[in-house]
């Protein structure tokens, strides 16, 4: 970790990490998908989990959201161990899945109310939060429309609003901009970056698109189930000796055995 990274730790990431992935390994029927993966996501920081297709990002995402349990290692959300605490450890977590997860036949409001009830919100409180979140995402006027009538970008905004409805400490987003046009992608990436600054949120953003990572973001590079680099985007570039992040990513993911120049 560079001095700049260490300084940033002190400034924005004081206290316990919002999300800790600690020596996690996972295999499907004997095929190792994750191998001794460790990293942290701190409050007020945008952490990009970058990796090519097949790197293990979605597996890791499934473990963090407890679709599956990690059999080796530990995952802690706001200090609470997922395996030991069980489902209640998911309470401080907001999630945006790669696949669309809205019910197309229900309205925006009905979709968000459903989620709010799953998080224990009263209808009155939920409605207040729904309006506030949609307002921030410039979606308030679409509240009564069926999701089927919304385009992909608007659906994604509704999913982001949903992930924030219960005021989580950590938000994880799995390839949240897949299938969106460039301006919409940029709007969503900027909005999520804003959330780290304005709400001190910890964000884990999985992606394979390098242009979604901004200078100063934290970066975790995953390749063939192993972490091959961590640090700030600038730090990773510097450690690989590449001219830019594209070059650094190419170098890190070119090694046939997953070994990396920077760790």
């Amino acid at each position: 970790m560079s001095e700049a990274d260490a300084a940033r730790d002190g400034a924005a990431g004081s206290g316990a990490p919002a999300l800790e992935v600690d020596r996690v390994s996972f295999a499907y029927a004997g095929r190792k998908a994750l191998d001794d993966v460790s990293f942290t996501v701190r409050r007020g920081r945008f952490t990009a989990l970058l990796g090519p297709n097949g790197a293990g990002k979605t597996t890791l995402f499934s473990l963090i959201t407890r679709l599956f349990d990690a059999r080796e290692g530990a995952i802690r959300i706001a200090g609470r161990d997922l395996a030991k605490t069980g489902a209640s450890a998911l309470a401080p977590l907001g999630v945006v899945f790669q696949q669309p997860t809205l019910d197309l036949d229900l309205t925006v409001r009905q979709n968000l109310r459903y989620f709010a009830r799953l998080r224990g919100l009263s209808v009155k409180d939920a409605d207040r939060r729904i309006e506030a979140q949609l307002e921030r995402l410039a979606m308030a006027e679409r509240i009564g429309e069926k999701v089927r009538a919304l385009n992909g970008g608007h659906r994604r905004r509704v999913e982001i609003a949903r992930a924030l409805l219960h005021d989580p400490e950590v938000v994880v987003l799995d390839e949240a901009t897949v299938g969106l046009d460039v301006p919409t992608r940029r709007t969503i990436v900027d909005h999520v970056h804003d959330l780290t600054r304005t709400r001190n949120l910890a964000v884990l953003w999985t992606t394979h698109l390098i242009d979604e990572i901004l200078p100063g973001d934290d970066l975790v590079v995953l390749h063939r189930g192993r972490i091959v680099a961590t640090g700030t985007a600038e730090g990773v570039v510097a450690e690989t000796g590449a001219p830019d992040l594209d070059g650094a990513f190419a170098r890190l993911t070119r090694a046939p055995d997953g070994e990396a120049a920077a760790r």
Partner: peptide, 16 residues
């Protein structure tokens, strides 16, 4: 489960 909305349910902070 394949398309997604079941995941919203399964990632709730409630026992399976």
């Amino acid at each position: 489960r394949e398309m997604g909305s079941m995941r919203v349910l399964l990632t709730s902070p409630l026992p399976r």
